[in-house]
């Protein structure tokens, strides 16, 4: 199918909003799963939500995980460590910015890019220039 995406945010609403934006670029070809907030809906991150989202996003072609703040990366790293080697090798955490990274990753995944290509593009999204004409 395609590389799946997991959007990890401290805020459930932020995660869902980013999924909404990214899906607009993926035209239904990519599994993009939100993992926002704690288990009881407060601001924070949940290992269980992140773990389940990775399972749901994984069609076998791999999963790119995008995170909002540092502690979301800690939880994502912990999720990876509990997987068996085969699954762990097809899940990667991107250091890219959450919104731009997710949109770029969705575009790449939708056209069938590999996990490496998706993550490289999402990481590079930090360089995207939003104020056009400025270089």
């Amino acid at each position: 199918m395609a590389v799946g995406l997991v959007i990890v945010s401290h805020s459930a609403r932020l995660a869902e909003g980013v999924v909404e934006l990214a899906e607009q670029m993926a035209h239904g070809n990519v599994r993009i799963i939100a993992a926002g907030g704690t288990d009881d809906g407060a601001l924070g991150t949940s290992l269980m939500k992140v773990t389940q989202a990775i399972f749901t996003a994984d069609s076998g072609d791999g999963v790119a995980v995008l995170v909002d703040l540092g502690s979301a990366a800690l939880v994502a790293e912990m999720a990876l460590e509990q997987f068996a080697t085969a699954r762990r090798q097809r899940v990667r955490i991107s250091n890219g910015p959450l919104v731009e990274g997710a949109v770029v990753a969705a575009v790449e995944a939708a056209v069938g890019a590999s996990l490496d290509e998706v993550v490289t593009s999402a990481d590079a999204a930090v360089e995207l220039n939003k104020l056009s004409k400025r270089t």
């Binding site: 288990d39 407060a42 991150t45 290992l47 540092g70 800690l74 939880v75 912990m78």
Partner: peptide
């Protein structure tokens, strides 16, 4: 702790 703390201290104390 990992599954209930919610903040960064969950993974940190959990680990």
């Amino acid at each position: 702790l990992v599954s209930t703390v919610g903040g960064a201290s969950g993974p940190l104390y959990g680990t």
